[in-house]
């Protein structure tokens, strides 16, 4: 079912990670990604795993939910691993036919897989614990200085909010239309490529029609409430940094700098 796509989904909750200021989370996710790509040896990777594990623990989310997010990317991860195993030169462990497996290949493949999995889990943790609205608020705030350069930051943020807001709605709609056409004997899951593509017409036409209808309705509703862009607009829930936010931010930024430095020394 389409509803099972968890990409970018938000799980409401009251854990520490949920309550953290979204700007802090956004900055820390960026720091986490940079640190993850700098990590090299066992020590730095260990620190990153601990970081992720602590965050997962604090989010109070079930690990299963996070693992489920990786599922759509299993193919890419496997491909990366295989390419690295077979195409890295070094000490040959064993070989068959035209394939050679090297020790270096295994190490690099393991590192890559770990990196990708942790990258996905870390970033998913952000979207799982932060509502899309708070996330775009944070983004707008962090990109705020660019407004001075006349970059349409508020418009971008609004567009993103709306897009994010309508992803679940459109998915639900897709599900509904699919079921309605299935009830009339539409077959989306079998046949060759051309047949499958043709089978999508009864799904896509109503979906587009309804997306346009929704867009028109939304624009109308926004205008009715005097929406006129970001100028002078105040927030219902202004973002506020608490001392806790500050502590977490400082501590974790320090950790990521530490990881960066340690990796330079080969740890």
């Amino acid at each position: 079912m389409l509803k099972d796509i968890t990409l970018g989904q938000f799980f409401p909750g009251h854990s520490l990670l949920h309550r953290l200021d979204p700007r802090v989370k956004l900055v820390l996710t960026a720091a986490y990604i940079v640190a993850l790509f700098m990590a090299h040896g066992v020590f730095t990777y260990g620190v990153m795993v601990l970081w992720l594990a602590a965050a997962v623990r604090l989010s109070r989310l079930r690990v299963r939910v996070l693992v489920k997010g990786i599922r759509p990317l299993v193919l890419i991860i496997t491909l990366t691993a295989l390419l690295n195993i077979f195409y890295t030169d070094g000490v040959v462990l064993f070989s068959f036919w035209i394939l050679r497996v090297t020790l270096e290949g295994l190490v690099i493949a393991g590192r890559m897989v770990l990196r990708i999995v942790m990258l996905i889990m870390g970033t998913f943790l952000l979207t799982y614990t932060t509502s899309p609205i708070r996330l775009t608020d944070a983004l707008e705030c962090l990109l705020g200085p660019l407004k001075k350069l006349r970059a349409p930051i508020h418009e971008l943020a609004t567009m993103m909010t709306i897009a994010l807001r309508f992803i679940p709605t459109l998915l639900e709609e897709t599900d509904k239309i699919m079921n309605a056409q299935r009830a009339r004997g539409a077959d989306f899951d079998s046949g060759h490529v051309v047949r499958r593509a043709r089978a999508l017409v009864p799904l896509l036409v109503p979906l587009f029609v309804s997306a346009f209808r929704r867009a028109e309705d939304l624009a109308m509703a926004m205008e009715c409430r005097c929406y006129h862009g970001g100028e002078g607009r105040t927030r219902m829930y202004p973002l506020r940094m608490t001392p806790l936010d500050g502590c977490v931010l400082t501590a974790m930024l320090a950790v990521s700098v530490g990881v960066g430095v340690a990796s330079r020394f080969g740890y």
Partner: peptide, 9 residues
């Protein structure tokens, strides 16, 4: 379905 007119294509 409910509101079946949205499935016309």
């Amino acid at each position: 379905f409910q509101y079946p007119e949205y499935q016309l294509f």
